[in-house]
C-alpha cells in the first residue's frame, strides 16, 4: 500500500478516530463505576475481615485480567515466531504492558488490604508472591524490549521471552504453594457478594479489551508512521 495512495484517500482518517472503541471505553468506565458503587453500597460487610474485604472486588478482577494479558502475550509470541507478522508483536507488547500495569495495581491493592488486615503492607503469602514473581518476569520482558537494538530482533527476543516466561507460570505457582502450604479457599459467598464480584469482573474485562484494542491501534499507527518516515528518508 503506497503512502501517497493513502494520502489521496481521506476516508482512512476516520478509522483512527475509533468511534465504536470510544463507546466500549465509555461502557467499561461506567461498569467500573457501577461495580465500585456496588462494592461500597450493595455488597454485605464480610463477617471476619470487615470492610477492607471490599478491596477484593477490584483486586481479584484485576488479577484475572493480568493473567489473561500474559496468556495473550504467550499466544501472540508463538504466532509471531511462526508467522513473522509485526501485528503479533504489537499485540504481545501491548498485552504485556497492560498486564504489568494491572499487576502493579493488584500488588498495590493487595498490599493496602494487607496493611488494613494484617498490619503489614507486604507478606510472603503465596498468592501475593506468585503475582509479584509474574510482575518481575514481565517487567524483565519490557526491559528486554528496551535493550535490544533493531526492531526485528526486539520482536524475536521478546517472543522467546514471552514463551519461556509463560512456561514458568505453573512452576512458580506450584513452588510458592508448596513453599507456604495450600490455603483453603472459603467456600460459598452470599448472593450479593457473588453478584458484585460478577459485575466487577465483567467491568474489568470490558476495560481490558478497551485498553488492549486502544493500545494496539496506537502501536499500529506508530508502525505506519515509522514506515512513512522510512519512505520519506529514501
Amino acid at each position: 500500500m503506497s503512502v501517497l495512495g493513502r494520502a489521496a484517500a481521506p476516508q482512512r482518517f476516520p478509522s483512527i478516530r475509533l468511534r465504536p472503541l470510544d463507546l466500549l471505553g465509555l461502557v467499561a468506565f461506567v461498569l467500573i463505576a457501577v461495580s465500585m458503587g456496588m462494592a461500597l453500597l450493595y455488597a454485605p460487610t464480610e463477617l471476619i475481615q470487615g470492610d477492607p474485604q471490599r478491596v477484593f472486588y477490584v483486586h481479584l478482577p484485576m488479577a484475572i485480567v493480568s493473567y489473561i494479558a500474559f496468556v495473550i502475550v504467550f499466544v501472540s509470541s508463538i504466532l509471531y515466531l511462526w508467522k513473522r507478522r509485526i501485528v503479533y508483536d504489537v499485540v504481545a507488547r501491548s498485552s504485556a504492558e497492560i498486564g504489568v500495569f494491572f499487576t502493579t495495581l493488584v500488588i498495590i491493592s493487595g498490599g493496602l488490604w494487607g496493611q488494613a488486615t494484617w498490619g503489614t503492607f507486604w507478606q510472603w503469602e503465596p498468592r501475593l508472591t506468585f503475582t509479584f514473581i509474574l510482575w518481575l518476569i514481565y517487567v524483565a520482558y519490557l526491559m528486554l524490549r528496551q535493550a535490544a537494538q533493531d526492531k526485528e530482533r526486539v520482536a524475536r527476543f521478546a517472543a522467546v521471552l514471552g514463551i519461556i516466561g509463560f512456561a514458568d507460570v505453573p512452576l512458580v505457582f506450584a513452588s510458592v504453594y508448596l513453599w507456604r502450604g495450600i490455603h483453603p479457599e472459603p467456600a460459598g459467598m452470599p448472593q450479593a457478594m457473588a453478584t458484585t464480584l460478577f459485575v466487577s469482573i465483567a467491568a474489568f474485562l470490558a476495560l481490558f479489551s478497551y485498553l488492549l484494542i486502544h493500545r494496539i491501534r496506537v502501536d499500529r499507527a506508530r508502525e505506519e508512521l515509522d514506515e512513512m518516515l522510512a519512505t520519506v528518508e529514501d
Partner: peptide, 24 residues
C-alpha cells in the same frame, strides 16, 4: 549478549524465571 546492556540484562532476565528452581 546481543542487547545493549549485556552484563545487566542476563541476571534481570534469568533470576525471575529461575525463582521456582531457587525455591525448590
Amino acid at each position: 549478549v546481543n542487547t545493549r546492556a549485556r552484563e545487566v540484562m542476563l541476571p534481570i532476565l534469568l533470576l525471575p524465571i529461575l525463582l521456582p528452581l531457587i525455591i525448590a
